[in-house]
Design a binder for these strands. Structure first.
Length: 844
RNA sequence: GCGGGUGUGGUGGAAUUGGCAGACACGCUAGACUUAGGAUCUAGUGGGCAACCAUGCAGGUUCAAGUCCUGUCACCCGCACCA
C-alpha cells in the first residue's frame, strides 16, 4: 500500500474534525458526563514546546476513550492571556497587547490543532475577552460584598524588574518567580483577598479528594496549620504581650521573650522613652528593615538581636521577670510577632540563648539541654514545672490549656502560615478592579449592570516609576461618579493579578456563551465538578489553591452546587533536554578540542564548570531558550507526524516523572506506526479473533482500558507493540483483529487509525464506534508455561493445562528430565505450587 | 532542618496480592536486500568461559524479596528562623 503520507492524512482528519465539531460536548444533560481538563496555557510569543503536549495528549487519550465508552465528554481549551510577558513584548514593539495576544492565540491554536487534540473548540474561552472578564469582575464584587476583599496599607513584595507587587506565592528565595529580579519591600495600599478565612477548609477538604499525594502535602505545608495556644505575658510597664506557642507545656522554661523588630509595642516604648538603649534598638530595626527576604534567610544561621533596656516581661506561671529582646528571627507576619523563648526545648531559642548567654532551664527531661535543645515530644517527661511535673508533653499541654483558661491568661489557638492574597497589580494588561473611591462613601463596587468595566484603550502602558499603575495617568477614565451617592469618585487604577481569570475558567467552559450568569445552574450542576484535572506542580500553591478558594466562596454564596472544583488532580513530569554545555553531550570534535586546550578531560570538565557554573555537570536539564535546547513540536510533526509525536510523548516514560527528550527514541514510535500501516497488506477476512491470538487480544483490551485511566499510557503502548509483534509472527491479521487493534490505538494515534479503518472499510469512523470489550475468562491461554525452581533457583520449565491442580503440576515437574536430574539422590523437604505461576521444590 | 519523591542493563523504562528481574523501545553487533543507507528485514544483545553473580549499600524475615522489615548512602523536588 506504499508509504504512509502522514502529512496529508493528518491534515485531512484534522480539517474534518474542526469542520464537523466532531468532539463538541453534547447539550444533553441526561447522558453520563465526563469532564477532563488540562490547564489552559498562557499564549506566549514562543509558541508551544514539547512539554505542553504531554499533558494535553494524556488527557486527550482519556477523553477519546471515555467518548468511545459512551460518555458525554467535555474536554475544552482556552487562553489565560492576561499577563506581563505580553505587556512587555507590546511595550518593546509598540504594539497593543490585545493585538499581541490575538496573534499568539492564533499561533497556539493552530499548533494545538496540528496535534489532533480532541478539544471542543466551540467552548474556547479567553480571559482577556470582556464577555469573560465581566464575570471575573463580578466574582470580585461578590467577594467584596461578603467582606473577603479589603484594601490595606501594607508591606508588600515589590519586584524591581517587573515594577509590580507580587503575591507571597510569586516570590522565590527573595527573587521574582517570573523575571528573577530581586524583590524588595514596599508599603503600599493593596487589595487583599481573605484566603485565610478558608485555610481550615482548604486543608480539611483535601481528605476527600483524589489528588496525588505530593499535591496534598504541598498545599497542607503551604497553608501551614499549627495548633497551640496564645499566652499573655505582662510587661513591667503593665502592657499585655501576647505570644503564640505550640509548646505551652514548656512555659516554666521560658527565660526570655523575643519580639519582632517591627512589633507595635517596641514602637510605643520607643515613643514613650521607656527604652533606655533607644539608639541601639533603632539601629537594629533599621538594619532589619533593609534586609531583603533573601538576605534574611541567607543569614538565618547566625542569630542577632538587641536586649530592650528599661523594660522586662513577667512569666505568668513563674511570676519571674525575664528580659525582652528584639530579633529578626521572630517574624512580624506570623502568630503575634512575639514569642516566649524556651531555650531548653527549641533549637532557635537555644542558639540565641547561647549567643547572648541567657539561662537555659530544662523543663522536659530526656535530653541534655547543655548540649542541644531537647525537642522530642514523644518521650519527654515534664520537670521543674510545678503542677506539670511528671506529665508527658501531651498531658502537660492539656493541663496548661486548662490552667491558662482558668486564670484568663491564654487560650487554645490555631495559626496558619498562609497569608491573605495580595490582589493588586500596577499594570495595564489585566482585569480592571471594578471599584471606586469616594471621600464620603469610601470604596464602593461599581453597579453590576455596568459590568464589564472595560480596560480603556490607551497607548502608554509603561508602569509608573513610583510603582503606580499606568491607568492612573488617564484621568478621563479614573474620574467617575460614586455609585452610592452620585458624587465625584475615582476608579481603582490597579488591575487584577494573572491568577484571577484562571481561578474560575473551568466553570465558564460549562456554559461559555451565557450572558446572564457565569454559567447556568443546570450546566454547573451537570458538568461539575471536573472529573480529572491535570497540570503542573508549579501551580500547586498558586492557581490550584487560589481556584479552590474561589470555588469554595462560590459554593458558599450558592453559585456552584459542590464545594470542591476538582475531583482528581494529577501532575505530569517535565520534558527535559540535552545540556549542550555538558562535556558528555558534546561532539567528539569539540571534546577533543577542549581536551587539547586544557590538557585532560578532567581539566576540560572543570573549565566548563567554571565557565557555566555547576549546571555544566548535568547532562540533562530543563529546556530553555538560552541553552537553545528547546524542541519545537512543529518540527517533530513535520519530520515524523503528529501521531508519532503523540505516541512518543506517551511512551517516553512514567507520566509523573520528568523525562529527557530523545530524538533517537522517537524513531521507534515512527517505526511502530509504519508497521501498523503495513498490516493492511496482510489483511484477511474474518470476524472473530483467531484462536492463537484470542487471549492476547482480550488481555490487551483489558490492559489498555485500565492503563489509560491510571496514567500508564507507556505500558498500554508497550502492550500494543507486543500484540503487533505477535500478529506479525502469524503472518496475517483479520478484519476483526485489525479493527480492535485500531480502536485500542485510536486514543493515542487518532489520525492513522481513522485512515486505515476507512481504507480497509472496517467500520464507520472510529470516533463513533464503541470501545472494545474483553471477556475475563478469555484472557487466559489454555496452557501455561510454569518455571520449576529447585531451592528457589530456576531449573526447568513445564507446560501444563491452565488451572491444573497441584498433583498434576507436580507430576509433570517430576517427569521433567532436568528436574529429575537436579533432585537425584536428594530428599524433598517441601513442594510449593503457585497456581499457573510456578513450582518450587525444596530439597536437602 | 522539615516534608515529599527516586535509585533496576550502554539508554528511556517494565515487573497485580512477595512468585521466571530486565516486558516494550532506543542504542549496539552481525547478516540480508541494496549503486547507496541515517531506509527496511532477520538474528543476537545484563555480567561471567563456567558454576554462578546481578535491582544504591549492609543486614534480616521467607520455600521464594526489586517488592516486606531494620539500618545506611546518594540524588531530585517543595518549604524553610512558621514559635
Amino acid at each position: 500500500m506504499g508509504v504512509y503520507d502522514y502529512t496529508s492524512v493528518e491534515k485531512k482528519w484534522q480539517d474534518k474534525w474542526v469542520k464537523e465539531n466532531t468532539f463538541a460536548a453534547k447539550q444533553d444533560f441526561t447522558l453520563p458526563k465526563y469532564y477532563a481538563l488540562v490547564e489552559f496555557p498562557y499564549p506566549s510569543g514562543d509558541g508551544l514546546h514539547v512539554g505542553h503536549p504531554r499533558s494535553y495528549v494524556a488527557l486527550d487519550a482519556v477523553a477519546r476513550k471515555k467518548r468511545l465508552q459512551g460518555y458525554n465528554v467535555l474536554y475544552p481549551m482556552g487562553w489565560d492571556a492576561f499577563g506581563l510577558p505580553t505587556e512587555n513584548f507590546a511595550m518593546q514593539h509598540h504594539i497593543h497587547p490585545e493585538i499581541v495576544t490575538e496573534k499568539n492565540v492564533s499561533r497556539f491554536k493552530s499548533q494545538l490543532q496540528s496535534i489532533g487534540l480532541s478539544f471542543d473548540w466551540t467552548r474556547e474561552v479567553n480571559t482577556t475577552d470582556p464577555s469573560y472578564y465581566k464575570w471575573t469582575q463580578w466574582i470580585f464584587i461578590q467577594l467584596f460584598k461578603h467582606g473577603l476583599a479589603y484594601k490595606k496599607e501594607m508591606n508588600v513584595n515589590y519586584c524591581t524588574g517587573c515594577k509590580v507587587v507580587l503575591a507571597n506565592e510569586e516570590v522565590v528565595n527573595g527573587f521574582c518567580e517570573r523575571c528573577g529580579s530581586p524583590v524588595v519591600h514596599k508599603t503600599k495600599s493593596q487589595w487583599m483577598l481573605k484566603i485565610t478565612e478558608y485555610a481550615n477548609r482548604l486543608i480539611d477538604d483535601l481528605d476527600d479528594l483524589d489528588f496525588i499525594e505530593r499535591v496534598k502535602t504541598q498545599q497542607k505545608n503551604w497553608i501551614g496549620r499549627s495548633y497551640g495556644a496564645e499566652v499573655n505575658f505582662t510587661s513591667t510597664e503593665g502592657d499585655k504581650i501576647t505570644v503564640f506557642t505550640t509548646r505551652c507545656d514548656t512555659l516554666f522554661g521560658a527565660t526570655y521573650m523575643v519580639l519582632s523588630p517591627e512589633h507595635a509595642l517596641v514602637r510605643a516604648w520607643l515613643e514613650n522613652g521607656i527604652i533606655k538603649n533607644a539608639d541601639e534598638v533603632k539601629a537594629y530595626q533599621e538594619e532589619a528593615a533593609k534586609k531583603s527576604d533573601f538576605e534574611r534567610t541567607e543569614l538565618a544561621k547566625d542569630k542577632t538581636g538587641v536586649c530592650l533596656k528599661g523594660v522586662a516581661a513577667v512569666n505568668p506561671v513563674t511570676e519571674q521577670e525575664i528580659p525582652i529582646y528584639i530579633s529578626d528571627y521572630v517574624l512580624s507576619t506570623y502568630g503575634t510577632g512575639a514569642i516566649m523563648a524556651v531555650p531548653g526545648h527549641d533549637t532557635r531559642d537555644w542558639e540565641f540563648a547561647k549567643k547572648f548567654d541567657l539561662p537555659i532551664i530544662e523543663v522536659v527531661a530526656g535530653g541534655n539541654v547543655d548540649e542541644a535543645a531537647f525537642t522530642d515530644c514523644e518521650t519527654g517527661i515534664l520537670v521543674n514545672s510545678g503542677f506539670l511535673n511528671g506529665l508527658s508533653v501531651e498531658e502537660a499541654k492539656k493541663a496548661m490549656f486548662a490552667w491558662l483558661e482558668e486564670n484568663g491568661i491564654g487560650h487554645r489557638q490555631v495559626n496558619f502560615k498562609l497569608r491573605d492574597w495580595v490582589f493588586s497589580r500596577q499594570r495595564y494588561w489585566g482585569e480592571p478592579i471594578p471599584m471606586t473611591y469616594c471621600d464620603k462613601c469610601g470604596w464602593q463596587p461599581i453597579s453590576e449592570d455596568e459590568l464589564p468595566l472595560l480596560l480603556p484603550e490607551i497607548k502608554d502602558f509603561e508602569p509608573g516609576e513610583g510603582g503606580e499603575s499606568p491607568l492612573a495617568r488617564h484621568t478621563e477614565w479614573v474620574n467617575t461618579v460614586c455609585p452610592c451617592c452620585g458624587g465625584p469618585a475615582k476608579r481603582e487604577t490597579d488591575t487584577m493579578p494573572q491568577w484571577a481569570g484562571s481561578s474560575w475558567y473551568f466553570l465558564r467552559y460549562m456554559d461559555p456563551h451565557n450572558d446572564q450568569a457565569l454559567a447556568s445552574p443546570e450546566a454547573l450542576a451537570y458538568w461539575g465538578p471536573v472529573d480529572w484535572y491535570n497540570g503542573g506542580m508549579e501551580h500547586t500553591t498558586l492557581h490550584l489553591l487560589y481556584s479552590r478558594f474561589w470555588h469554595k466562596f462560590l459554593y458558599d454564596i450558592g453559585v456552584v452546587p459542590y464545594k470542591e472544583p476538582y475531583k482528581k488532580r494529577t501532575s505530569h513530569g517535565m520534558i527535559l533536554g540535552m545540556n549542550p554545555r555538558a562535556f558528555v553531550n558534546m561532539s567528539k570534535k569539540d571534546q577533543d578540542a577542549l581536551v587539547a586546550e586544557y590538557g585532560s578531560e578532567e581539566a576540560a570538565k572543570k573549565a566548563l564548570v567554571e565557565k557555566y557554573g555547576e549546571m555544566a555537570e548535568h547532562p540533562i536539564v530543563k529546556m530553555s531558550k538560552s541553552l537553545k535546547n528547546v524542541v519545537n513540536p512543529d518540527d517533530i510533526i513535520r519530520d515524523y507526524g503528529a501521531d508519532t509525536l503523540r505516541l512518543y510523548e506517551m511512551f517516553i516514560g512514567d507520566f509523573e516523572q520528568a523525562a529527557p527528550w530523545s530524538t533517537s527514541s522517537i524513531k521507534g514510535c515512527k517505526r511502530f506506526l509504519d508497521r501498523i500501516w503495513q498490516l493492511q497488506d496482510i489483511l484477511i477476512d474474518g470476524d472473530e479473533y483467531r484462536p492463537e491470538l484470542e487471549a492476547a487480544f482480550h488481555r490487551a483490551i483489558k490492559k489498555v482500558t485500565s492503563d489509560i485511566d491510571s496514567l500508564k499510557a507507556n505500558t498500554a503502548i508497550a502492550t500494543l507493540m507486543a500484540l503487533v509483534n505477535d500478529i506479525v509472527k502469524t503472518g496475517a491479521t483479520n478484519k476483526k483483529e485489525y479493527h480492535t487493534l485500531l480502536m485500542l490505538l485510536n486514543p493515542f494515534v487518532p489520525h492513522i487509525t481513522e485512515e486505515l479503518n476507512q481504507i480497509c472499510g472496517l467500520s464507520g469512523e472510529l470516533s463513533q464506534q464503541a470501545w472494545p470489550e474483553y471477556d475475563e475468562a478469555k484472557c487466559i491461554d489454555s496452557a501455561v508455561e510454569m518455571p520449576v525452581q529447585i531451592n528457589g533457583k530456576l531449573r526447568s520449565r513445564i507446560t501444563v493445562p491452565t488451572d491444573s491442580d497441584n498433583d498434576t503440576v507436580l507430576a509433570a515437574a517430576h517427569a521433567d528430565e532436568k528436574v529429575a536430574a537436579a533432585i537425584e539422590g536428594k530428599t524433598i523437604v517441601k513442594e510449593i505450587v503457585v497456581k499457573n505461576k510456578l513450582v518450587n521444590l525444596v530439597v536437602k
